[in-house]
Simulated assay, not measured.
Amino acid sequence: MNMGYGEFIKRNRIASGFTRQVQLADKSGITAATISRIEKEIQKPSMETLKELARFLTSTSYVELMVACGYWDEEELLEDPSKPIDATPAKVTIVPDATKPKKPSPVEDDFIANIDLSDEELLKQFNFQIDGMNLTEDETKGIIAYVRSLRLVNQNKA
């Protein structure tokens, strides 16, 4: 039986060293009342709230939080993780051709170098596509948040 998102967040809050909701609230800037409503599943957290929680819940990741809260489908994320990323000028594209070089292109390098820009600035500079289709603004922001969470996890490991 799958646990609900509230229990998932509560368990990871505790596993991350926040025995009380107010401790996580103080660190994250999300009110203790909001954390309580989320854990009781009275209020579903927004994607922005999950992005902020992911910074402090060290026992989980932004991706796992997004899956637990129903924003992303785990099966879709796992369909073909071997697809390399290829880029053409001014856009980042996921391509199904496994023969493409795995070395990042200048556009990908530029994207990663500018990942600290705001979401809006990145949306202005880059056009994101998967399977030849432009991503929505929410999908693009999700990918940006995912890349940032990976960077945060890698920084915490170092």
Rank of each mutant, 00 (worst) to 15 (best):
1 M>W: 03
4 G>E: 02
4 G>I: 02
5 Y>L: 01
7 E>Q: 10
8 F>I: 09
10 K>R: 15
11 R>M: 07
12 N>V: 02
16 S>Y: 13
18 F>C: 03
18 F>A: 06
20 R>Q: 12
24 L>A: 11
30 I>T: 07
41 E>D: 06
41 E>H: 02
43 Q>D: 03
44 K>D: 03
47 M>C: 06
48 E>R: 12
58 T>Y: 11
60 T>P: 04
61 S>A: 14
65 L>V: 08
65 L>A: 09
70 G>V: 01
73 D>Y: 01
73 D>Q: 07
75 E>H: 06
77 L>R: 09
78 L>V: 03
78 L>Q: 12
78 L>G: 01
85 I>T: 14
90 A>G: 06
100 K>N: 08
100 K>F: 11
100 K>A: 12
100 K>P: 01
102 K>G: 14
104 P>K: 06
105 S>A: 14
106 P>V: 07
107 V>A: 12
107 V>F: 04
108 E>G: 05
108 E>V: 14
110 D>E: 13
110 D>L: 08
110 D>G: 04
112 I>S: 02
113 A>F: 09
116 D>I: 10
117 L>G: 03
118 S>M: 08
120 E>C: 01
121 E>H: 01
124 K>T: 11
125 Q>T: 11
126 F>Q: 07
127 N>C: 08
127 N>S: 12
129 Q>C: 11
135 L>G: 07
135 L>I: 10
137 E>Q: 14
138 D>P: 00
138 D>F: 00
139 E>A: 11
143 I>K: 06
145 A>V: 07
146 Y>R: 05
148 R>K: 15
148 R>S: 14
149 S>N: 15
151 R>L: 13
151 R>H: 13
153 V>P: 00
156 N>A: 12
